[in-house]
Amino acid sequence: MDVDAEEGTLLKFAPFQSTVDEGFWHRLSSLKLNKLRLDESPMPITGFLAPCSHKQVPSRLTLLAESLPSEDQKQSSSLPATLNQGNRNRCPVPGILYNTNTLEGFNAIDRVSLLETEAKKIWDDIHNGKVEESSSVLLRFMVISFAELKNWSFCYWFAFPALMLDPAARVVSLRSASQCLSLEQAESLSSACNEWQNLNLDVTAGVLFFLVCIASDSRVTLRHLADWEACMDDGQKVLFGFYDPCNVPYPGWPLRNYLAYICIRWGLEKVHFLCYRETRGFADLGFSLIGEASISVSPEWKTRDCTPKAVGWEVNKGNAKPNFISLAKAMDPTSLAISSA
């Protein structure tokens, strides 16, 4: 876990992983048949995320039936918004779905420019202050798909756009959070994080990214990103914290756009960050990481007109290709008719 020896090496980020619940495809199919029909316009969807809570597997960005609007507009406007609240295991992340009518259309999608478009939205949200209102826009994602409803099969590909710092960030130090903090600080941080989870249950905005303020008396408080200047005035030590879905001793994907935000918004060149992880749903500082990154981007990179390069198409089974799923057995009308009889 100690990367101190390799001081100055490139900071690497573990990519996001996606999973799609069966319910998502069921709802997409019925939306397509009954409402969207041949409409190919991009559709806003919601992904769900939680900090890593099992050491053996990373957390994943999950699509559920609730990721899509309900067919019945009346229900969609009132219910999901309220029912998604208060679920700490389902932090909402904004995404967009490009569902094409044909396989040819799917193959013809210009993935490079689509990724650029989404990355530009993140870039703009950093510049216009939207991140402070709702930090989850830093995790904006995209799915392209083709639903073959004749045989209930689906082609899909996720992208998690990440702005590329130019030149890339370097790692100064990276180690287990419990090694970086005194016992008092660690205890105070743990309870502050556990509290933060519960405090923010009713406010979905601003949960995933936060500031960790460590006072001289070792007392730790968590604050919203917008409070950065106030924290600096208090003379406290500040770490940039985020819910890390990753389970390996490297920071997870969300840190990439977070660093871009910190660099542009606050002009920092040395960034101390906390990759917050849990065990069994409670703060685990032995598993969480604290690191320091050094950023020295060219001045042009910070100007709003610049459109930085982005990466992020998901690698599936080690290859750059879309995922394919067939739900014929689950969606076959004959078997469905029998089971619903």
């Binding site: 690497k12 980020f13 990519p15 490079v112 990440a162 490297y250 990466v311 750059a320």
Partner: peptide, 28 residues
């Protein structure tokens, strides 16, 4: 057999495969 043919990739510069800051997932 039912998997539809996908076009070969000609554009690689937007893929995380070729990005040095992307960790190669050791847990595949």
């Amino acid at each position: 057999d039912n998997i539809p043919e996908m076009d070969e990739l000609e554009d690689v510069d937007n893929l995380i495969e070729t990005d040095p800051a992307t960790l190669e997932t050791p847990y595949l």
